[in-house]
Design a protein around this nucleic acid. Structure first.
Lengths: 221, 221
DNA sequence: TTCATCGCTACTGTATACAATATGACTTGC
DNA sequence: GCAAGTCATATTGTATACAGTAGCGATGAA
């Protein structure tokens, strides 16, 4: 048991499991048995249960009555739906960000962009994932709409669950597109920012679809 | 087996509390003490805790560490943010609904519309609330995007938390606007449907803002 | 009076224990 | 050999018990 229990075990457990899901250690479809997790993390089942409930509400975990929790499996249909909504929201967010272009947030975005560009060349997958999340998080803050930010974060996590596989391959493209969006935001060009943000989401989805198709073919071969 | 799913106390408790929040019996800012709720509902604290966690994830309840749960207080700023996002999504949803205009769903919408028109004249507040939710729910299904539907439902519940007060006063307007949206959807007029849906959300918000201002003036007087 | 400190109370956070349910193996009759 | 019924086991759902923390009022000194 941890001595420093300030940040509430439930929260710690939730972050731990979320991390394992997002970085792929827990694969889609994997069963999340409460006993196993609680033993593994050295806590009782109660915090684990609450963590799983939370993650279920976020859409990362599927909860079936009396059957337990599994990591969600994102079907191509769901991906399409997620992308449709995400594109819309990211577009509007970029539009609002361009309208406000808060200097402090722009500064932070530039910083993240620099790190991201570096990582795209020689960073680990984990780093890329973290920086990608950071860029989108800060971009989300730029619109000054916390509701929008929260919704986008949720959708982003669920899509990244599907896209994580090819985050490495698309890294350079990703950060080129990030740069373009930021540039439009700084220039205050609302429509361009929106368009680029929408395209960014759609491009990531297309890349995923292609990778998926290739993988399917490989399986068939 | 799925038809006869055991009610699961957590779920029942959650619906119960959600209902009490949405119909105003539990007012914003009210403390939700686990012991009291569990005694009141005749269950132990565990299901109550899980229900509160769920509601917190939905944004109806605020959860502070070691201090417990309270019904969220929706500030005017948050309302503005909610409306901004909701308008965007309802607009896109209406656009997609107009594109598809599924006959079966259109039939159901017509049915709800008829009930709503009747209730606007001589229905109870509770009825109006239920039918309003039903109309928006079915409209949400019309776009055939379950992600969009889920997100909109969440936002709708949170706004209705604020708007419930004047749902009675605006009933006729509401259902006139509903009729307009449905007409555009049936006609397959995507842009009109989107525009009317956006306006619908914004009008409800304006009415709320006016009522709020009046109430504030009354308080001052 | 006013302020700081102490201790009490109410409540949440966590653990353990028990009940209920689904799933898969095993038996049994044909 | 096969299908249907039953039983065992694994796992979730719920209850109770205990630990820890925040908030508040009482107490006492300046």
């Amino acid at each position: 048991m941890n001595a420093r229990t300030s940040p509430s075990l439930s929260k710690l457990v939730r972050e731990r499991i979320r991390g394992q899901i997002l970085n792929g250690r827990l694969k889609p479809g994997a069963r999340l048995v409460e006993d196993r997790l609680s033993a593994e993390l050295g806590v009782s089942r109660v915090p684990v249960r609450e963590a799983l409930r939370s993650l279920s509400a976020e859409g990362l975990v599927r909860l079936e009555p009396h059957r337990g929790a599994t990591v969600v499996e994102v079907t191509p249909e769901t991906v399409a739906e997620l992308v449709e909504v995400r594109a819309l929201l990211e577009g509007q967010n970029a539009r609002l960000a361009a309208r406000r272009h808060d200097p402090e947030i722009v500064r932070q975005l530039r910083e993240t962009l620099a790190h991201g560009n570096a990582a795209a060349e020689s960073g680990t997958t984990e780093e890329l994932t973290r920086l990608n999340a950071e860029f989108h998080e800060r971009l989300g803050e730029a619109s000054r709409n916390s509701v929008l930010l929260d919704v986008m974060r949720g959708l982003r996590e669920r899509t990244s669950l599907a896209f994580a596989i090819n985050s490495r391959a698309r890294a350079r493209e990703d950060w080129k597109e990030h740069a373009g969006i930021l540039e439009a935001v700084i220039a205050g060009d609302e429509e361009l920012a929106a368009l680029l943000a929408i395209r960014h989401v759609q491009n990531a989805a297309s890349a995923f679809a292609r990778a998926h198709a290739t993988a399917a073919n490989d399986d068939a071969a």
